[in-house]
């Protein structure tokens, strides 16, 4: 299907003898926001990290099945993992900026990708910050230490940094869980804006957030994909009883 960006077929993931994902088959649409919800330990983050091979170095990692992005098997031996991560950016729960200036954080990845021209780098900094709705706040603070920014600004700077290498896909693992309501709302607005250009996957514990921001929602439980549907359907009339119990808080 043309509009499918990410495709997994019978994906199972193991860490030693623990199975984190069990036969997950899903088709994530391009330029849409997909939320991944489920109780702790259900495999949400393992799934997300599988999509840019962040699990590769985890102890005892093994996987079965297929993961394709734009039809390309990302676990193929010929895949350059650094290039893959350029294509599939990631933002974590807590901002993980380098203890360097705002500017240096933003040009770090482009420089790794051999972009040396100062004008070009300046252009990248402005574009990614504008996309991450933080340009106006930091354009006069580019030489400040990034760690001096507020928590909400740091998180948006992380998003800007992820955008600096022009990815296609943005993975977000609890991107707003450590933020106050105003900063959370800004991140949510940002996600809504960014989906025009990117395919976005968001892992969240906050079901209301999933409802607000996403077009599609996937409910995981015990490593299995229980239900994957349009967010409106999941939150008004889910097909599966486990999904209903989880979103209504009757779980367990």
């Amino acid at each position: 299907m043309k509009d499918v960006k990410i495709y997994t077929e019978n994906l199972s993931v193991f860490f030693d003898y623990i199975q984190a994902l069990n036969n997950v088959s899903i088709q994530i649409k391009a330029n849409r926001v997909t939320s991944i919800i489920g109780p702790s330990g259900c495999g949400k983050t393992s799934f997300l990290r599988t999509l840019n091979r962040m699990n590769d170095l985890m102890h005892g990692f093994k996987m079965k099945g297929e993961v394709k992005i734009d039809g390309v098997d990302i676990y193929d031996d010929n895949i350059d993992v650094v290039n893959l991560r350029k294509l599939v950016g990631m933002v974590f729960q807590k901002s993980n900026l380098f203890p360097k200036s705002v500017y240096e954080n933003l040009i770090f990845a482009p420089k790794l990708n051999n972009i040396k021209d100062k004008n070009k780098l300046d252009e990248i900094v402005e574009r990614s910050c504008t996309q991450a709705s933080i340009w106006d706040e930091i354009k006069d603070r580019l030489n400040d230490n990034a760690l001096n920014l507020s928590a909400g600004q740091q998180q948006r700077l992380c998003i800007a940094r992820a955008l600096s290498v022009n990815p296609d896909v943005l993975l977000m693992d609890e991107p707003a869980s450590a933020l106050d309501p105003i900063s959370t709302s800004r991140i949510e607005e940002l996600i809504f804006e960014l989906k025009k250009d990117y395919t976005i996957l968001v892992v969240t514990h906050n079901m209301q957030q999933a409802a607000r921001i996403s077009d599609f929602t996937a409910f995981f439980y015990l490593g299995q994909l229980v239900e994957f549907e349009k967010t409106t359907k999941i939150f008004t009339n889910p097909s599966n009883k486990q999904t209903e119990d989880y979103i209504t808080g009757r779980f367990g």
Partner: peptide, 9 residues
């Protein structure tokens, strides 16, 4: 209205 209640609280 149903959608607004369910998705936006």
């Amino acid at each position: 209205c149903q959608k607004l209640f369910a998705l936006n609280q």
